[in-house]
Design a protein around this nucleic acid. Structure first.
Length: 559
RNA sequence: UGUCCGAUGGUGUAAAGGUAGCACCACAGAUUUUGGUUCUGUUUGUCUAGGUUCGAAUCCUGGUCGGACAACCA
C-alpha cells in the first residue's frame, strides 16, 4: 500500500495522556490499576465502565489490575456480594492479577495509625458524633479543635490500643488525624480515621472492633499494592488532598489518584439506594431482572460482554457531567448480536393462513440460512405445509400506502418459502379477520424462483403443524423520563408501567426447541432474544434483548 | 455569601496556539427474500464579555450556568 500513514492511532483520553507521560518520563516503568468495589451490592453499568477503564488501561499499557474489595465497613458487607462481583467482572471478560481485600491490611493499617499518633498527627477524640459535626464548622465557616486534641502521643497511643482491645463501646471514641480545622476542604478538618464497631466482619469475624474509614484505607491499600494510577469518580476530588497528605506523612509508596466523571445512562437509575428500592418494593423481580441496569440484569437480558465493552469504549471518559443516551448501548448490543445470532422465525400474535392450492396432506422441508451475516453459519430446515401462521399485524384489510405486507389481492413472499396471494378473508362475529385463504406460486420457491413475480414484502411465518408454543418477555425502558433521579418527587412515580409485556401464545419454528441458555437469536423482523432461566422443559421462555430498528414503525408514527 | 471541579452539534468524545473531527441520533438516497444489515450523502456545535496573539475551542481576567463538599458510608 502506498498509504504509509501510521495505523490510525486513536486520540488519547486524559488518563491515557497522563499514563503515557508517566511512562515517558520514567516516573513509572509499568502501571498497576485497581478496581475497588465495596461488597455491599450488585455491580451496575456504571461499574462496568469503571471496570473497562481500569482493566482496559492496564491492558493497553501492559500493566496489571487488582480486584480489591474495599471492605472496611462490616455492617454493610457480605460474602454473597463478593461472589457476585467476581462473577460479573469475569463475565465482562477481565482477569485480575490479584484478588485482594482492604481487610487484609487491617494489621498494617493499624500500624500506620500508631505511626501517625507517634508523630503527633493523630489523636483520640471522645466527642459524640454531633459534637464532632458541630465543631467541624461549615463550608463557609471554619471549625475549631476541642480539648481532646491536646492529648499527648503517649496518651493517644494508650487510648487507641484500648480502643482496639475492645475497652470502649461503639461511638465512644474515634481516632482523628490532626490536620487543619480551618481548611477550606472539609475533609481536612481533622478527619476520622478509625471508629469502633463491635460488628462481625465478613472475613475477619470478631478479630477487630475498630475499623478504618475509607480515607484511611483506600490510599494506603493503593500504596501497599503499589498502584500507580488510582482512578475514581469525581466525587472523590476533595479526598485527594487527604489521600496525598496521608501518603506523605506515612512516607509510603506515592500512589496517585485521578478522577473521571461517572457515566450516567438515560432512562434508568444507578444509585444503590434506588436500585435497592426497586428490588425491595418489587417494581422489578430481583437484582437480575432484565430491566435492571445491573450487570447481572443485562446478562440475563442477553447483552453480551463484547457489546458492553464496546459501549464503554465508545462513550469514552471525561470530567464533565454527562447523560449518555441508552440508545448508544442498544446500538452496541444490536451491532454485536447482528453478527452472532442465529436467525429463527417466531410468530407472536398468530393469524392462520390456509393455502388453498397446496396439496392436501403434503408438507416439505425448506432451507434457510442461520445468519446472512455469517457465510459459514450454515442452514437449517423449516417445515412448510398448507396451513401456516403469520403475524396478525402483517395483514390489513384496508392497507395504507406503502404497506408492503398482506392485504386482499396483495402478494408477499414468505421468507425462505413461496410467494403467496391473499384471496379471501374469513372473519369472526366482530368482523375481525381470523383466517386468510391464499394461493401460493409453486415456481416461486425460494432459491429457485422462476415465477418472475416481484413482491415488496417478505414475512416471517411458522408451519402450523410443527410450531412449538413459547413465552416471550418483551422489555422496555424502566422509566418514562430521561433522568428519573432529577425529576420532582419520588423517582418511582416515573416508572414505565409497560416495561414488561408477556406474550404467552407465541409460536416458534421447531428448530427453536433445541435452544439452550447462552444462545442468542434474532427472531426475524422482531428483535434479538435469548432463553431465560425460567424456561422449563416444553415451555421455553425468551427474553427480548433489544428490538430491531423499525423504519416502518417510525414512518407510521410520523404519519 | 466559601472552596474545589467542569462547560465543544440533540447525545458522548477529539483537536497539546494553525482546516472544529469521529461515533450515536435525525434526515435523504442506493442495496436487500428481515421495512433488519450494508453503502452513500445531508443538517446541526466551541456558554458569555473582554484581553494576549499574525492567528484562540485551546492561554489570561471577569461573568453566567452545572456539579461536588459540612456521614463514626464508600
Amino acid at each position: 500500500m502506498s498509504d504509509n500513514k501510521p495505523t490510525e492511532e486513536r486520540s488519547l483520553n486524559f488518563l491515557e495522556e497522563i499514563i503515557e507521560a508517566d511512562l515517558r518520563s520514567g516516573k513509572h516503568t509499568s502501571i498497576i490499576t485497581r478496581f475497588p468495589p465495596e461488597p455491599n451490592g450488585y455491580l451496575h453499568i456504571g461499574h462496568a465502565s469503571s471496570i473497562c477503564l481500569n482493566f482496559g488501561l492496564a491492558k493497553k499499557y501492559h500493566g496489571t489490575t487488582n480486584l480489591r474489595f474495599d471492605d472496611t465497613n462490616p455492617s454493610t458487607e457480605e460474602t454473597e456480594y463478593v461472589e457476585s462481583i467476581k462473577a460479573d467482572v469475569k463475565w465482562l471478560g477481565f482477569e485480575w492479577a490479584r484478588e485482594l481485600y482492604a481487610s487484609d491490611y487491617f494489621p498494617q493499617l493499624y500500624l500506620f495509625a500508631e505511626k501517625l499518633i507517634e508523630k503527633g498527627l493523630a489523636y483520640v477524640d471522645d466527642s459524640s458524633g454531633e459534637e464532632i459535626a458541630e465543631q467541624k464548622g461549615t463550608p463557609t465557616m471554619p471549625g475549631y479543635r476541642n480539648r481532646y486534641s491536646d492529648r499527648s502521643p503517649e496518651e493517644n497511643l494508650k487510648l487507641f490500643r484500648e480502643m482496639k482491645e475492645g475497652k470502649y463501646r461503639d461511638g465512644e471514641k474515634v481516632l482523628r488525624a490532626k490536620i487543619d480545622m480551618a481548611s477550606p476542604n472539609m475533609l481536612m478538618r481533622d478527619p476520622i480515621l478509625y471508629r469502633i464497631k463491635h460488628v462481625a466482619h465478613h472475613r475477619t469475624g470478631h478479630e477487630w472492633c475498630i475499623y478504618p474509614m475509607y480515607d484511611f484505607a483506600h490510599g494506603q491499600s493503593d500504596s501497599i499494592e503499589k498502584i500507580t494510577h488510582s482512578i475514581c469518580t469525581m466525587e472523590f476530588v476533595p479526598h485527594r488532598e487527604l489521600y496525598d497528605w496521608l501518603i506523605e506523612k506515612l512516607g509510603i509508596f506515592p500512589s496517585r489518584q485521578y478522577e473521571f466523571a461517572r457515566r450516567n445512562l438515560s432512562y434508568t437509575v444507578m444509585s444503590k439506594r434506588k436500585l435497592l428500592q426497586l428490588v425491595n418494593e418489587k417494581h422489578v423481580n430481583g437484582w437480575d431482572d432484565p430491566r435492571m441496569p445491573t450487570i447481572s440484569g443485562m446478562r440475563r437480558r442477553g447483552y453480551t460482554p463484547e457489546a458492553i465493552r464496546d459501549f464503554a469504549d465508545r462513550i469514552g471518559v471525561g470530567k464533565r457531567d454527562n447523560m449518555v443516551d441508552v440508545g448508544v448501548l442498544e446500538f452496541c448490543v444490536r451491532e454485536h448480536l447482528n453478527k452472532i445470532s442465529l436467525r429463527r422465525m417466531v410468530v407472536f400474535d398468530p393469524l392462520k393462513i390456509t393455502i388453498s392450492n397446496y396439496p392436501e396432506g403434503k408438507s416439505e422441508l425448506l432451507l434457510s440460512e442461520n445468519n446472512p451475516e455469517d457465510t459459514g453459519g450454515g442452514t437449517r430446515e423449516i417445515p412448510f405445509s398448507g396451513e401456516i401462521w403469520i403475524e396478525k399485524e402483517d395483514f390489513m384489510e384496508n392497507p395504507p400506502k406503502k404497506y408492503f405486507r398482506l392485504a386482499p389481492g396483495q402478494m408477499v413472499r414468505l421468507k425462505s418459502a413461496y410467494i403467496i396471494r391473499c384471496d379471501e378473508v374469513k372473519k369472526n362475529a366482530h368482523g375481525e379477520p381470523v383466517e386468510l385463504v391464499c394461493t401460493y406460486f409453486p415456481e416461486s420457491k425460494s432459491g429457485e424462483d422462476t415465477s418472475g413475480l416481484k413482491v415488496q414484502g417478505t414475512l416471517h411465518w411458522v408451519d402450523a403443524d410443527s410450531a412449538i408454543p413459547v413465552e416471550i418477555r418483551e422489555y422496555d425502558r424502566l422509566f418514562r423520563v430521561e433522568d428519573p433521579g432529577s425529576e420532582e418527587g419520588d423517582f418511582k412515580s416515573y416508572i414505565n408501567p409497560d416495561s414488561l409485556r408477556i406474550i404467552s401464545g407465541a409460536l416458534a419454528e421447531p428448530a427453536l426447541a433445541a435452544a439452550e441458555m447462552g444462545e442468542r437469536f434474532q427472531f426475524l423482523r422482531k428483535g434479538y432474544f435469548c432463553p431465560d432461566k425460567d424456561s422449563a422443559k416444553g415451555r421455553l421462555v425468551f427474553n427480548r434483548t433489544v428490538t430491531l430498528k423499525d423504519a416502518w414503525a417510525k414512518e407510521q408514527k410520523k404519519a
